[in-house]
Amino acid sequence: MDGGGGVDAVDLRRSMAAQRLAFERQIADGRERTKASTSAFSASLLSARSLANHTISHREKLKELKDRLRKLEADLAEALSIQVSKGTKYELTRESISNATATNEQLRTLVIDQRARRDEYRHAIEALEVNSDATGTNNLEEAIMWYKKFLGFQVVGGEGVKFVFSKIDLHNPDIEFFFCIKLNKDRYNLLQCNPSLKDSEELVKDLNCTNDLFKFVRIMRERFQAAAINGTSYCMLSL
């Protein structure tokens, strides 16, 4: 009896030692993931700040061009009034019109470029939120709160994970567009999508092939923007 008990005790100690080694490996792996997530957060935040600085610079240039455009429009109005009484001012008027048209085209191009940079800035922020680890620091939580307040993006837990976007419809920035996905046995399933997108199932198939959640979130947001522009019907649902 005592001899058998000694063998059981040795086996028990070996089993406990093996479990302890497994736990230590899990802890080490968790620390590595946390370190990698922190590095990704810092890099994404630096990228977002850089894009924000570019946006500020373009706003200043946009203001300067608007001032120039207003001056040119004033000059054009003056030239048109002179043309009524003096036909010799025709060339001056035509030149003013040409300058105003060229400046307006430059302004339009700058606005398009600024909007593109704004979208890049938002995408950088979305990447930061989607890829950040759930065990992040208080700084990450504060950043998410900032993005929710000013950029209309939030992630809500529940049966699945709900990604909610506002500030998409320029005419109705408070309207929320969202989709909800759930990971089940290493496969993503789309539980909800508002408004409904005709190619959402294909996008989910691609997500399960690539496992690139950031790309999926970015594309879904772009589809929502297109739906808002095209006037696709949608309804307000509470979270």
Rank of each mutant, 00 (worst) to 15 (best):
M1L: 03
V10K: 09
D11Y: 04
D11K: 10
S15I: 01
A18L: 04
F23M: 12
F23V: 14
I27Q: 15
G30T: 11
S37H: 04
S37G: 11
A43V: 00
L46W: 11
L46D: 14
S47H: 08
A52V: 09
H54Q: 14
E60F: 04
E60T: 03
L62W: 00
L65E: 06
A77N: 08
A77R: 05
I82W: 01
K86Q: 10
T88K: 11
E91H: 10
L92N: 11
R94G: 04
T101W: 06
L107H: 08
R108Q: 12
I112R: 15
Q114N: 12
Q114R: 13
A116W: 12
D119H: 13
R122T: 09
I125K: 09
N131L: 06
E141T: 11
E142L: 15
I144L: 12
G152T: 08
G160D: 10
F163R: 01
V164I: 08
I168C: 01
F178Q: 06
F178A: 01
F179Y: 05
C180D: 14
K185T: 10
D186R: 04
R187K: 14
N194V: 10
N194H: 14
K198P: 07
S200L: 06
L203E: 09
K205T: 10
D206E: 10
L207E: 00
N208K: 00
C209W: 08
T210D: 08
N211K: 07
K215C: 02
F216H: 05
I219Q: 07
E222A: 03
A227Y: 03
G231F: 02
T232M: 02
S233Y: 07
C235E: 14
